[in-house]
Design a protein around this nucleic acid. Structure first.
Length: 674
DNA sequence: GAGTTTGAAACT
DNA sequence: CAGTTTCAAACTC
């Protein structure tokens, strides 16, 4: 019963985007495009758009989805829906369809298609910002229209399948914007730019994921091409190809249940035939790899991508070279998958899988205890359960009490739960419940522990070394009796020290006591204040000297203004990037971080950008309205942060801000290599 | 394995 | 938002 109801939702959502695809695919649209001399111009402008970032207003077609992007599965879902509608829809000529049709027989088709799709995704992201619709439209349009209109070029492209990937994009567009590689780079860059402009950081995150997804999809393309397609059997060649990428995308997408659901969806459907979840979870990793891969890897990719440097590297490769990507990517994934650590990973890193992976990695060194546990899970429990299993009696495994549910995984045999609803069979119920919980607390499934960026952010000073641990419990614990010395304490359990976010009493956390943490902060603050004060004084003195010596050139700015003028460094170099990264109004609370981390960020390449995106989530989580217990959160008001640039120059108060900024940060932190 | 303790999650 | 209840994991025996 419930299932039926909840099933309706997804269906409707999927249908919603259909109009778009129809629009894109409609003969009228096609016709207009053929007639219009602007076609080439459009694509050309797109390249310019990337470089110049001067985006025109989005076409109405892409306007509607925007609101959705921030919700739930965001644009991924939208995209997914669109793609899916295209792929599964009534045979309208969509980008994918067209390509599939043309390349149906090509073995490497998947890769190509994925690439193309990726390029399309990026535009969508752009459009989500409402900044680069032209590009978006162009991409989709050209890709959708060209196949039918220009079969020969594509056919040729198909012939050299190996080169195809790169050629195809140019072909589908107009191929005059430079080399495919360069275009691709531009597209990536643009996407990233856009990502940061996005009003919602989550989008950025998503975008990152999106990119990741492309490599992931490639990875799966191979697997699916062999395994999934047969599994689906009934479907024609086009469907699997079209669907698979989407699913992958959803998989990669940051951990909302929906996505996860989508992850399971396909497998689930297949499973519904042979009870796959069980197979998957019970995992004989190798044997079931093909089946498990889809759900598992998606999740893992999230975690890995977000967290591990390896992943990032692989992502980078993704950008740089398509060929190596696969190797790198699969390489990083495979082990994880083989161990069936998926659930484990998710265990803590729910919505943001990113955390978990790092956590595992980090804690390996950091926390013997926690790691041992995981280790045991991974090593010992592989056959039975690579992850902890629940024992729920009353919650039906549909509440956060249930570790499986909280981790975003289905309960499996090893679980001792009673009346369990957390199974693929009740997928809809699970999703609905999850939705409900998320509506109540959007971060309910977010990773509980995030790596603190303190270390990276403070790397300019010694502060990092003063931080007891590089990771903290996002929300903090509330222990009264355990003194944070038992696993009752989530901080302890996670192997992280207590922080300012904790409301624990008598904290004796072995990984870091709260008071110690506070003390550290205070120290750093004092030092910071002191340094700033000295610098200020120096500068003021210098200024006065300059004024005396060169009255003309130097405008007699008030001391602070002068400093500001100096800082502009901050504001000049950093501000633009900040805007670049965060966008004007969006997540203003992020600005400070940008400032602080700017130097680091500026040095970062695409890869770095990826990291930033990754880190954005944790930070958002930090500043999110969940339970603003922490003084930190209370203090960090957007307004303050927003004015941080000039403020940072102004005396101790500014110092305070600085400090706050440091305490917030999560960005650079996720970089495992720190 | 049963019972107790604990603190998060959920509820009011 | 604070207090209470429910819940399941962690812990003890």
């Amino acid at each position: 019963m419930d299932n039926e109801n909840s099933q309706k939702e997804p269906a409707s959502k999927i249908e919603t985007p259909t109009p778009k695809s129809k629009f894109e695919d409609s003969p009228v649209f096609n016709f207009i495009n053929n007639l219009s001399p602007f076609e080439s111009v459009k694509s050309f402008s797109s390249a310019q758009t990337f470089s110049s970032l001067s985006f025109t207003s989005p076409p109405p077609v892409f306007a509607s989805p925007h609101p959705n992007f921030h919700r739930e599965s965001r644009f991924f879902r939208c995209q997914h829906s669109v793609d899916r509608s295209k792929a599964l829809g009534d045979g309208s000529v969509s980008k994918e369809d067209g390509e599939v049709d043309l390349n149906k027989d090509a073995t490497l088709e998947d890769d190509e298609e994925e690439d193309t799709e990726t390029s399309c995704e990026l535009p969508q992201i752009l459009s989500s910002d409402g900044q680069s619709p032209p590009h978006h439209g162009e991409d989709i349009v050209t890709q959708a229209l060209l196949p039918p209109s220009d079969p020969p070029p594509l056919g040729e492209a198909n012939e050299d399948s190996s080169m195809n990937r790169l050629q195809k994009i140019p072909d589908s567009q107009e191929g005059e914007n430079g080399t495919p590689a360069s275009r691709r780079l531009m597209a990536d860059a643009a996407a990233e730019l856009l990502v940061f402009r996005s009003p919602n950081d989550s989008e950025a995150f998503t975008c990152l994921v999106d990119k990741i997804s492309s490599s992931e999809r490639r990875f799966f393309a191979r697997v699916k091409h062999h395994d999934i397609i047969p599994a689906n059997g009934s479907s024609n060649d086009n469907e699997p190809l079209a669907v698979a990428p989407n699913q992958l995308v959803s998989n990669v997408h940051r951990g909302s249940m929906r996505r996860r659901c989508l992850d399971f969806e396909v497998p689930g459907k297949r499973k519904k035939d042979d009870d796959q979840q069980t197979v998957c979870d019970n995992n004989k990793p190798e044997s079931s790899s093909s089946k498990c891969v889809v759900p598992g890897i998606g999740l893992h990719l999230n975690a890995i991508a977000m967290a591990s440097s390896n992943t990032k590297i692989s992502i980078t490769h993704e950008y740089s070279s398509s060929g190596e990507i696969q190797n790198t990517f699969s390489g990083s994934i495979t082990p994880v998958h083989s161990q069936d650590t998926v659930p484990e990973t998710l265990d803590h890193a729910e919505s943001q899988p990113g955390e978990e992976a790092p956590k595992a990695l980090v804690f390996e060194e950091l926390i013997p205890d926690s790691f041992q546990k995981k280790k045991q899970v991974l090593e010992g429990g592989e056959g039975e359960s690579s992850c902890k299993r629940c024992n729920c009696k009353k919650s039906k495994c549909l509440k956060l009490y249930c570790e499986c549910f909280a981790a975003g995984v289905y309960c499996i045999e090893p679980c001792s739960c009673v009346d369990c609803f957390n199974k693929p069979i009740h997928e809809d119920t699970v999703l609905a419940t999850r939705k409900q919980i998320e509506s109540r607390n959007p971060l309910a499934f977010a990773p509980k522990v995030i790596r603190n960026s303190d270390s990276s952010i403070m790397d300019t000073s010694d502060d990092a070394s003063k931080t007891p641990a590089s990771a903290r419990h996002k929300r903090g614990c509330n222990c009264k009796k355990s003194n944070c010395l038992k696993k009752y304490c989530e901080c302890y359990q996670s192997g992280v020290g207590c922080s300012i976010n904790c409301r624990c009493e008598g904290c004796k956390n072995a990984f870091g006591r709260k008071d110690a943490y506070l003390h550290t902060i205070m120290e750093s603050k004092q030092e910071d204040d002191h340094e700033t004060y000295e610098k200020r004084t120096e500068k003021i003195q210098q200024n006065s000297k300059e004024v005396e010596q060169n009255p003309q050139p130097s405008t007699p700015l008030p001391p602070y203004r002068h400093l500001v003028a100096h800082q502009p460094f901050l504001s000049r170099n950093k501000l633009p990037p900040t805007q670049f990264f965060l966008g004007a109004g969006s997540s203003s609370f992020r600005k400070p971080d940008c400032d602080v981390t700017q130097s680091v960020n500026e040095k970062k390449s695409l890869e770095t950008v990826t990291e930033d995106k990754t880190e954005i989530m944790p930070d958002i989580l930090n500043t999110s309205p969940i339970k603003a217990n922490s003084p930190n959160r209370k203090r960090v008001s957007p307004a303050h942060i927003g004015s941080s640039e000039p403020g940072s120059i102004l005396g101790k108060r500014s110092n305070g801000r600085k400090l706050i900024l440091r305490s917030i940060p999560a960005f650079p932190s996720l970089n495992p290599n720190q």
